[in-house]
């Protein structure tokens, strides 16, 4: 009877629900510190569902490609892909090493670069809303992962860890609207900040109008953000335009195809900036 009454007065119900939601939003916007327990809980529980679903989907895909496709070729192909991925990672490290070798100061940091520790993780889910560019991976704090760790792929930078729970973690992709990374143009050493736009392209901002930037230039991480290790590929310059008297408007095509990612590497080695910050806090 009461339920029937509520249904007939949907206008009042609407106002009551809206009021509740506005209060809920207000409460969160006023307090911006710390990771809420409910986020960790909901994320943890749902990631288990995603893990099961992802396992099911992967199982069906493997079954299909395993029996219908040519098995040996597939295995060989996967092995070659793994080797190629390892070679690309090594190539990126070498590229970064070459950068470092250009100056004495950079030479001193050589050891950190060589000893970059990473752990592989499988992608088990995506964001619940299309306006957020995040992925869920199958490793979490139990595997030594923590917030703000860089996530990379053989092709280049993927993003950073934002909400690790025990057995899974969310990765904010570099193309997310709230994502950013310190960047440098490899050829001319022009510095700037690469930010996501929620679509397939990145924008490199705060690059001086006087800088020499050309289409096709490789953009790599500068390391100044304290999250991404220096020298990893972000992408290539796609367009360069004037943007007012001081800065250029630069569009960067990411090196990573985010829709094709299946596995990523999480960088466990803290960046020098992060280590320094930890030292100060101690």
């Amino acid at each position: 009877m009461a339920l029937q009454d509520i249904r007939q007065r949907s206008g009042y119900l609407f106002l009551a629900v809206m009021l509740g939601l506005v209060l809920l939003i207000s409460a969160q916007v006023n307090s911006r510190s710390g990771v809420p327990v409910r986020e960790s809980l909901t994320s943890g529980i749902f990631s288990e569902v995603q893990r099961v679903l992802s396992g099911g989907v992967s199982g069906v895909r493997r079954l299909w490609s395993g029996y219908v496709g040519l098995r040996n070729l597939r295995a060989e192909n996967e092995e070659l892909k793994r080797q190629l991925a390892a070679a690309e990672i090594a190539s990126q490290e070498q590229r970064a090493l070459a950068d470092r070798a250009r100056g004495l100061e950079k030479m001193l940091e050589l050891r950190d670069r060589v000893n970059l520790r990473t752990t592989a993780a499988e992608i088990i889910g995506a964001a619940a809303m299309p306006d957020f560019r995040t992925l869920t991976i199958d490793k979490g704090t139990r595997d030594g992962l923590g917030p703000d760790m860089a996530v990379i792929a053989p092709a280049g930078v993927v993003g950073r860890l934002v909400a690790p729970s025990a057995r899974s973690a969310k990765v904010q992709l570099l193309i997310d609207r709230n994502a950013a990374a310190g960047a440098i143009v490899e050829r001319t050493r022009a510095q700037g900040v690469v930010v996501g736009g929620g679509n397939e392209r990145l924008q490199m901002q705060y690059v001086s109008e006087a800088s020499d930037i050309a289409v096709g230039d490789v953009v790599v991480t500068s390391g100044i953000d304290g999250i991404y290790p220096k020298g990893f590929i972000i992408g290539r310059v796609e367009t360069v335009e004037k943007n007012g008297p001081a800065f250029k408007r630069i569009v960067v095509k990411p090196a990573v195809d985010f829709s094709q990612l299946e596995e990523v590497l999480v960088v466990l080695t803290p960046t020098p900036a992060k280590e320094a910050a930890a030292g100060v806090s101690e």
Binding site: R32, G34, T42, M129, V162, K170, Q172
Partner: peptide, 8 residues
């Protein structure tokens, strides 16, 4: 399910 409290 969004990474809410994490700072951007």
């Amino acid at each position: 399910l969004l990474p809410n409290a994490v700072m951007g």
